[in-house]
C-alpha cells in the first residue's frame, strides 16, 4: 500500500466518522465542529483525486465561510433563548429506514458497475487548465454564479437585519 492510498483511507475514514458523528451528536455546536472535520477531510480526498482547485475552494468557502455562518447562527439563536442548543430527535424509525435503504441502494448500484481505473495524474498542469477553462469555456456560468452570490448575500443581509422590520 503506497503512502497516497494510505492517506486516502485515513481522510475517508475521518470524513465518514465525522458524518456519522453529526448524526449521533446532540449539541448543535459540536455538530458544526464535526462538519468542519468532515469538510477538511473531504478537501484532502479532493487533493488526492487531482482536484486541487476544488480542495482550496472547499477549505476557503466551506470551512472559512459557511461554517462561520453556521456558528454565528448557533450563537445568535442560543443567545436569544439563553440556553444551549441541545436538539432532540424525532422520526427515528422512518429516518433510519430511509437512510439505510438509500445507502444500501447506492452501494449496491455502485458495486454492480466496474470502475477499474486507478487515480493517476492528469496530463498537464490541472490548476493551469482550470484557470484557462474557467475563463474560456465556462465564463458564462462563472459570471452567473457571481451574480447569484451577490443576490443571495444582499438578500441574506436584508432578511437577517432588524432595520426593515422595525419600520412597519
Amino acid at each position: 500500500m503506497s503512502l497516497i492510498s494510505l492517506a486516502l483511507y485515513i481522510f475517508e475514514a475521518l470524513a465518514g466518522a465525522a458524518a456519522l458523528g453529526i448524526l449521533l451528536v446532540r449539541n448543535v455546536f459540536h455538530a458544526a465542529l464535526l462538519l468542519i472535520v468532515c469538510l477538511i477531510s473531504l478537501a484532502g480526498v479532493f487533493v488526492i483525486y487531482n482536484a486541487e482547485f476544488i480542495a482550496v475552494t472547499q477549505i476557503l468557502v466551506y470551512a472559512g465561510g459557511v461554517l462561520v455562518l453556521i456558528v454565528f447562527g448557533i450563537m445568535l439563536s442560543s443567545r436569544i433563548a439563553g440556553k444551549p442548543l441541545v436538539v432532540t430527535n424525532q422520526y427515528v424509525l422512518p429516518a433510519s429506514l430511509a437512510g439505510i435503504l438509500s445507502a444500501g441502494i447506492l452501494i449496491k448500484l455502485f458495486s454492480e458497475q466496474p470502475f477499474a481505473q486507478q487515480p493517476g495524474a492528469l496530463p498537464g498542469n490541472p490548476m493551469n487548465q482550470t484557470g484557462i477553462a474557467l475563463m474560456r469555456d465556462y465564463v458564462l456560468p462563472f459570471e452567473i454564479a457571481g451574480i447569484l452570490l451577490l443576490i443571495a448575500l444582499i438578500g441574506a443581509a436584508v432578511t437577517a437585519s432588524s432595520f426593515y422590520s422595525k419600520k412597519q
Binding site: E12, G16, A19, L20, V28, V45, V92, I100, A103, I107
Partner: peptide, 24 residues
C-alpha cells in the same frame, strides 16, 4: 470512495429527517 459518498448522503438525509432544529 463511492461507499464513503453513499454513507455521507445517507447520514445527511437522516440528519435532515431526525433532528428537531433548523440549523441541523
Amino acid at each position: 470512495t463511492l461507499i464513503l459518498s453513499s454513507i455521507l448522503f445517507a447520514a445527511g438525509l437522516m440528519t435532515v429527517i431526525v433532528k428537531r432544529n433548523a440549523i441541523m
